[in-house]
Design a protein around this nucleic acid. Sequence first.
DNA 1: TAAATTTCGGATAGAAATGTCTGATATATG
DNA 2: CATATATCAGACATTTCTATCCGAAATTTA
Lengths: 149, 149
Amino acid sequence: MSLIFSRQCEYALQAVLYISAQEESKFTNIIEISERLDIPMPFLGKTLQLLVQHKVLQSLKGPRGGFKLAKPPDEIALFHVVDAIDGTDFLTSCVLGFSECSSKNPCPVHSDWGALRDRVYQMLASKTIADISKEITDSKQLRTKLRLL
Amino acid sequence: MSLIFSRQCEYALQAVLYISAQEESKFTNIIEISERLDIPMPFLGKTLQLLVQHKVLQSLKGPRGGFKLAKPPDEIALFHVVDAIDGTDFLTSCVLGFSECSSKNPCPVHSDWGALRDRVYQMLASKTIADISKEITDSKQLRTKLRLL
DNA sequence: TAAATTTCGGATAGAAATGTCTGATATATG
DNA sequence: CATATATCAGACATTTCTATCCGAAATTTA
């Protein structure tokens, strides 16, 4: 099986988008997120803890507690979420798995893949939660997908 | 951890490139490939079997046996190897993990990611073993990387 | 201050991917 | 035809990722 992001990273991205679509000052709890997005609750807990540690989210314990964005949505790029969960190895590691692969010692697809990888990074780094929130507001389809009614 | 291709797929790509760099009519055995490329031998065996089943490679048992390309190198694209090992889900599955995601029901990054994915496919489908063999012939660095002396 | 709620942290369990082992099967060579 | 070589096939082991469980800590509310 080939995949771009780990399942945990997919959960993280979905959850951050869900949280970002809530009222900005409100803390959203795990129970709600896991039920709406159909993500196993304890695993989502671990995942959101990672995002808190990486200062993507802010948490609050106790009644009315939960999670909200740690920064304004235009300061959180998708890349920050991916970085917190999966790390950034995919930006530098060789797509063919050669351990010593660099521009000075390239694999047979080094330059081809490098160009594509740069585009992936550009997309992830430039796309912010604010951008996506705007799209969500403008699209009923997206609200449905994120279970926002 | 995020990765584009599974480790098994990386092994497969490396092995096919190694085989393609050998004399065309010769069968190359697993022992040689696994030692040169530092791939666990039994696992490489399973992997090459998959490539035989998908008609990327041809095998021969017994003395002087081993593996060689099943078709002329200009008829084998990198995509065929990836397809045989990892499959093609990455071309259609949602990068955010939403199960129902399509152009009619897109996720927040559907179009952005779709464009990138198309480029990845283009690269994999257009790059053939013959293309790479030529590069290898022209580059001492590549021969070193593939342990071809 | 007591009780209820919710995240946090560590230990454990299950599933999937990766890696290993053993014997069977086929082929070349003497 | 016997032997050595190499792939093939299935079972098994290990590692990594995903998922679960339980109790502790913090915060709100009554």
